[in-house]
Design a protein around this nucleic acid. Structure first.
Length: 186
DNA sequence: GCAGTGATCATA
DNA sequence: ATGATCACTGCC
């Protein structure tokens, strides 16, 4: 199975709202026990900076949020509701807290289900995404055109107040089935 | 619809 | 030390 070229830190060194759609169609690669599995990313969310009231970083630099202030391409993984690990990749320059939440890959929908299926826990928190850590991102060479990308408000962030809860920082690859139309393949 | 679950953070 | 909150999921 092709796994493509690993995405460098430079790919992540730009605003989260740019990285989030750019990750659609890219690969999330997991290595466990010498087995590699490649997953196509289908849904992401951007948490854009310290002024973003939906972001943990809006509460400042604490032990929990410290990884968000790390270098681009590092991982921010935290537990929510005492049960579900959330996988994020840090974006932008060091000391600027921003990240992209990986919400779904093909065949696995939901950020908590995703980490459970891939065996991702806080053990990888603050690590760089890399072959070394066993979790990284890659370019499959697949083209995702802007027309295939759908934007919506983020999920589960009503606590942020209307202005920030309504920002369209969630990105999905539109599925031909859900659009109710068949698509001619080129 | 709503309970489960436990780390984190603010308050004290 | 205590209590509220929570970037979710699964079952009623």
């Amino acid at each position: 199975m092709p796994q493509g070229r690993s995405l460098s830190a430079e790919f992540f060194n730009r605003p989260a709202e740019e990285v989030a759609p750019a990750l659609l169609g890219k690969a999330l690669v997991r290595r466990r026990e010498r087995k590699r599995t490649v997953y196509r990313i289908t849904e992401t969310e951007a948490y854009v900076g310290p002024h973003d009231l939906a972001s943990h970083a809006a509460r400042g630099r604490t032990r929990r949020t410290e990884p968000m202030f790390g270098p681009p391409g590092s991982l921010y993984i935290y537990l929510v509701y005492g049960m579900h690990w959330m996988l994020n990749v840090v974006t932008g320059e060091i000391d600027y807290p921003a990240a992209v939440l990986i919400r779904s890959v093909k065949t696995i929908t939901g950020p908590g289900r995703l980490t459970r299926a891939l065996g991702i826990t806080g053990a990888l928190n603050a690590h760089q995404a890399s072959a070394r850590s066993g979790l990284w991102f890659a370019d499959l060479g697949e083209r995702v055109v802007p027309q295939e990308i759908v934007r919506t408000p983020r999920i589960g962030v009503d606590y942020a107040g209307p202005v920030w809860a309504e920002k369209e920082y969630r990105f999905l690859i539109s599925s031909p089935m859900s659009s109710g139309k068949h698509v001619r393949q080129v």
